[in-house]
Amino acid sequence: MTSGTTGPGTAPRPFRQVDVFSDEALGGNPVAVVHDAAGLGDDQMQAFARWTNLSETTFLLPPTTPGADYRLRIFTPGNELPFAGHPTLGSAHAWLEAGGRPAGDHVVQECGAGLVRLRRRHGRLAFAAPPLVRSGPLEPDLLDGILSALGIARADVVDAAWVDNGPGWTGIRLASADAVLALRPDFAALPADVGVVGPYPPGAECAVEVRAFCQPSMGLAEDPVTGSLNASLAQWLAGSVLPSSYVAAQGTAVGRSGRVHVETAEDGTIWVGGATRTTIRGHLDLGGGRAD
């Protein structure tokens, strides 16, 4: 199956809402997935994403790059993203559930960040972490702005770095998961999208707690469970500060039970995965006919 059009005049498009990164019902991060999205304009996609008011809404389209199984466009309520993790997993789940069959050993998604491979292991979908487009220390003024918005001092920070794999993430490492959960950011003051990570004690269910704070232009404040951020944090910390394979908790502060599984393969590829479950099936009708 491809995500191509079904012909003019068929305005309603298949729609799924998929919960990602939790084994518990309604415990993860939902993504709205529109199938057969060819013919929808940019403004329509953005308007629908704004209407759903979810962290991300995605649109499945025919691929334009050799080797891709489908093309994905990803929108927050405020803007389009080149890549995001939980929409990647949720959209692949929806595509496969609707009858999609990958051409090769992996599902290959085309998106603004390029080609992203996905696989299914241990009953979970996982994506191969895309390369960082920016790494290294944060500029002092930027770090000061982030810490002011988070309400913490430099002495509270173990480390900080750019961890941008497309969405623009900066990373802040704190001494403990409790310190991460205690944060009460001033979201309006955030100068960048910020991921914060801190460890749980040895022997705990999860290695770390993660939180993702977004600038107002994104149209959301705290993202419940974030695949792209966990992928970039793993590239920063896995195999050094953290084990090469581990489970991260996210969403605790907003009443979710997100669990992100990070696995480093022998070839060095970092795979980021979690549970996926369709919670809503239906059709999207934006009115009028389709101009394909």
Rank of each mutant, 00 (worst) to 15 (best):
G198A: 05
V31F: 00
D141G: 09
G287E: 15
I280E: 02
S240N: 08
I146S: 08
V254P: 04
D144I: 07
C206D: 10
G168A: 06
G67I: 11
D156H: 12
G136P: 01
G4Y: 07
D164G: 06
N29I: 04
Q250E: 13
N29H: 10
A275Y: 03
V157A: 03
N29G: 04
G145L: 00
P102H: 13
L147T: 15
G136D: 05
A234W: 09
G227M: 05
P131R: 02
D285T: 06
V33P: 01
S91G: 02
I270G: 09
A177E: 08
D36Y: 01
P167D: 04
G7I: 11
A32C: 14
C111D: 03
R134F: 00
I280C: 10
R117H: 15
D193F: 02
A94P: 10
S217D: 13
G114I: 09
L26M: 10
A189R: 15
A249F: 00
L233M: 14
F127T: 00
Q44C: 02
S232F: 04
A182G: 06
I270K: 07
L190P: 13
G114M: 15
P167G: 00
H261V: 15
G112P: 02
Y70R: 09
D267I: 09
G85A: 12
V260E: 14
A238E: 02
L54N: 00
R256H: 03
L118Q: 03
S176L: 12
E222Q: 12
D186G: 01
R259N: 08
E209W: 07
L40A: 10
Q17C: 03
L220R: 01
D141R: 01
R16A: 14
V133F: 03
V158S: 00
F21Q: 01
G100E: 11
A68Q: 04
S245C: 04
S135F: 11
A38S: 15
R256N: 06
C206Q: 10
R211Y: 00
H35P: 04
C111Q: 05
E24Q: 08
M45D: 04
R281I: 00
G239T: 05
F187V: 00
R50A: 00
V225N: 00
A234R: 06
G273S: 10
A92K: 03
R124F: 02
A155C: 12
E205H: 11
L237T: 15
H35K: 01
R16K: 06
A204L: 04
G4I: 05
L54A: 02
D69S: 11
I280V: 15
Q109M: 13
